[in-house]
């Protein structure tokens, strides 16, 4: 009788170790079958999925009774970690924005600025998966971007509400101006690191300020590999906050 389990991990190795641990046998004594690999998605926590089957005839449980007894921390997606929830619900099939989507998005956003009679140009910066990344330039751009100013986020939200009606299908717009997003990402990653270090040294959880969904995701991602802490979000939009807590066990 060969038992088999499925497990996931960020790397193939991690998935194998998790599967072996769940079986209670060392990884060397398992056969692995790769079920899924390299699942895409910005917040892919589980990139690899393997099925492990204990290979040896002798019951592994007896050679390693303690391994079966001890609750082995199997790295499976933590339901409490809402990284997935912060991500947009992934459409069933992979959605990728094409040039036509991007042109329509740029034209629609440009229409907003033209209607407002402000000098801002919306240009296509890049396409990443389902996201159409638009860059705003022009003399009046400053009206919509300033430090800690959510207008850019509001505008992005509004544009997506309009855009999803214009072109249903799951592609989305992101707006950036004056490298705001990039600077913000860097600042958030730095903040996440600093707070995580404090969480580890004080063994106390820390709650960050309320952040919009895509910024929370940056924090979750930044700390996904940080030893000794785990992250999740709590509260309701728009005051949903990331909590960084010391890893239990």
């Amino acid at each position: 009788m060969s038992e088999s389990v499925e497990a996931t991990g960020r790397t193939l190795d991690e998935a194998k170790r998790a599967a072996a641990a769940a079986l209670g046998v060392p990884p060397e004594q398992c056969d692995f079958e790769l079920l899924e690999s390299g699942a895409k998605g910005l917040f892919a926590k589980a990139n690899y999925k393997v099925r492990a089957t204990a290979r040896t005839a002798e019951p592994a449980d007896e050679s390693h009774p303690e391994m079966a007894a001890v609750e082995v921390p199997v790295k499976t997606p933590d339901p409490r970690n809402d990284g997935q929830a912060d991500a947009e619900p992934e459409p069933a099939e992979e959605v990728a924005a094409n040039d036509e989507d991007a042109q329509a998005a740029a034209a629609m956003v440009q229409g907003v600025f033209d209607a407002a009679d402000v000098e801002v140009d919306a240009e296509i910066a890049s396409l990443t998966g389902r996201y159409i990344n638009l860059r705003l330039t022009g003399p009046d751009t400053g009206l919509f971007v300033s430090p800690r100013n959510p207008v850019l986020d509001s505008l992005q939200y509004l544009c997506n509400a309009m855009y999803s009606r214009l072109r249903p299908g799951g592609t989305r717009i992101t707006l950036d101006a004056k490298e705001y997003r990039q600077k913000r990402t860097e600042a958030l990653e730095k903040l996440a690191q600093q707070v995580a270090e404090q969480v580890v040294s004080r063994k106390q959880e820390a709650v960050l300020d309320a952040l919009p969904a895509h910024e929370r995701r940056i924090v979750h991602r930044a700390l996904a590999d940080f030893e000794g802490v785990e992250t999740y979000s709590e509260g309701e939009e728009p005051s949903r906050r990331v909590v960084i807590s010391p890893k239990t066990q």
């Binding site: 907003v112 407002a116 402000v118 009046d140 009206l143 919509f144 959510p150 207008v151 509001s154 505008l155 939200y157 509004l158 509400a161 939009e237 728009p238």
Partner: peptide, 21 residues
């Protein structure tokens, strides 16, 4: 209006920024 007024508030925020000029 949107859920929790999110859309109309986004619109207000946009219009206010234009008005700020």
């Amino acid at each position: 209006i949107g859920r929790n007024g999110r859309i109309v508030n986004a619109l207000r925020s946009l219009v206010s920024s234009v008005g700020a000029k």
